[in-house]
């Protein structure tokens, strides 16, 4: 086993230089740094609960190694909350009760935000397709689709 490697990752705008084991996943790294909004649901890249953004693109925190992100910018739900970029989605999720236990929600929000950046007026079918890499066991998804659809409309009206 290779020993720890020194890396610098910018987490939510703040650089962190750490010595990490090469096998450490980005999700476990972020959680150990206190960013516990990144949830670990399956550790094999299926459920989407650990979804974060790496250099602006969503990625699976459990399938990404921390050492792969040396020199990169990582954004978690804490960062996205802090800079307000998903505030409208968060409000809509609350209004529509698009979360129950909340475990999938941070990943769901970042995935939904990515969709709305790529497609300003997605159909319900497109929303459902795009969110299919993020599992929710509580809601049955309809309220999530409602919330994303509502925010798409709101964002379209604002622009």
């Amino acid at each position: 086993m290779t020993g720890p490697l020194a890396i610098t990752i910018t987490i939510n705008g703040e650089p962190a230089t750490r010595a990490v084991e090469p096998r450490l996943s980005l999700a476990d790294f972020l959680r150990a740094e206190g960013f516990t909004g990144t949830h670990v649901g399956c550790e094999h890249g299926v459920c989407g609960a650990c979804t974060i953004r790496v250099d602006g693109r969503t990625a699976r925190g459990c399938l990404t190694l921390a050492v792969q992100c040396d020199g990169l910018e990582v954004e978690t739900i804490e960062g996205a909350t802090g800079n307000g970029c998903v505030a409208d989605l968060q409000d809509a999720f609350i209004e529509n009760n698009a979360l129950q236990c909340g475990f999938c929600t941070p990943g769901m929000l970042l995935t939904a935000d990515e969709l709305l950046q790529e497609n300003v007026s997605p159909t319900r079918t497109e929303i459902r397709e795009h969110l299919s890499g993020n599992y929710c066991r509580c809601t049955g998804y309809q309220a999530i689709v409602d919330a994303v659809e509502q925010v798409a409309r709101q964002r379209a009206e604002r622009t």
Binding site: G37, E78, Q90, I94, N97, L99, T105, P106
Partner: peptide
Amino acid sequence: NARRLVQGCGTY
């Protein structure tokens, strides 16, 4: 209690 959960600030 939904606000803390959408912010990733729950305590599991």
